[in-house]
């Protein structure tokens, strides 16, 4: 087999693709969070930002969105494939299972939390990425008409079930990132005794910032919409 093709079929090659696509996705989450903080600056700022992404920068944003979709599909496709192989690698389970590593059970939930996040994306994307154009009312700033995504966000988050679903998803995303950020580095060979504690802390801190940030905004929007 061609050595390059063999790399993409090997366990390590696929784990490295898993890590790279994961890195791309979690960097995107940070940018997404920064954009969402615009909610706090009021409807005009937030709607202008939405207009910037969907209209003004359309030619740049759409290819980026396709690359994100590709990374997402690759990440989840490989995830399912690797998990199936991992199950097959131990056909008969242990009767007694214990752990010496005590590294946290959440590290074993990647498949579970990942599947939930797929569900989340299936709910989230049609709503805020595609549906918002249809459901959101129109706002008018200086004669420029744009979708009032701010109003749509506040209206949606006023529903406690909706907010609850988002908060649960962020909690699961937290465990996914707390393991995933560090794991992506290890798979790519980024490991050094001097920095390993730092990588572990960075992984947790990143998960706290991302999930804490999104959750805080969801809670804020929930109470904002009610008042």
């Amino acid at each position: 087999m061609n050595p390059i093709a063999a790399y993409f079929r090997s366990s390590i090659g696929r784990k490295q693709l898993m890590g790279l696509s994961g890195i791309y996705l979690y960097i995107f989450l940070l940018i997404h969070l920064v954009g969402n903080i615009g909610l706090l600056m009021g409807p005009e700022h937030f709607n202008q930002y939405g207009y910037l992404l969907t209209h003004t920068l359309r030619e740049i944003i759409i290819p980026i969105e396709f690359s994100l979709l590709a990374a997402f599909l690759l990440h989840l496709g490989l995830g399912f494939k690797l998990a199936a192989e991992n199950r097959a690698a131990r056909p008969e389970r242990y009767a007694v299972k214990a752990s010496k590593a005590r590294s946290g059970a959440y590290r074993g939930w990647m498949m579970l939390t990942g599947s939930w996040l797929l569900l989340f994306v299936i709910v989230h994307m049609p709503h805020f990425r595609f549906g918002a154009y249809r459901v959101a009312p129109i706002a008018n700033y200086d004669g420029l008409e744009m979708n009032d995504l701010y109003a749509e966000a506040l209206r949606s988050f006023a529903n406690p079930w909706f907010t609850g679903f988002y908060l649960l998803s962020f909690a699961l995303l937290f465990t996914h990132l707390a393991h995933g950020v560090q794991s992506s580095l290890q798979s790519l060979g980024v490991n050094h005794p001097r920095y390993n504690t730092g990588f572990r802390r960075f992984s947790w801190a990143y998960a706290v910032v991302i999930c804490g940030g999104f959750a805080a905004l969801a809670v804020w929007a929930h109470f904002q919409g009610k008042i």
């Binding site: 690797l82 991992n86 097959a88 752990s99 590294s103």
Partner: peptide, 10 residues
């Protein structure tokens, strides 16, 4: 037929 590494460090 060994499994893949998921960095659990067991």
């Amino acid at each position: 037929g060994f499994g893949n590494c998921s960095n659990r460090y067991e």
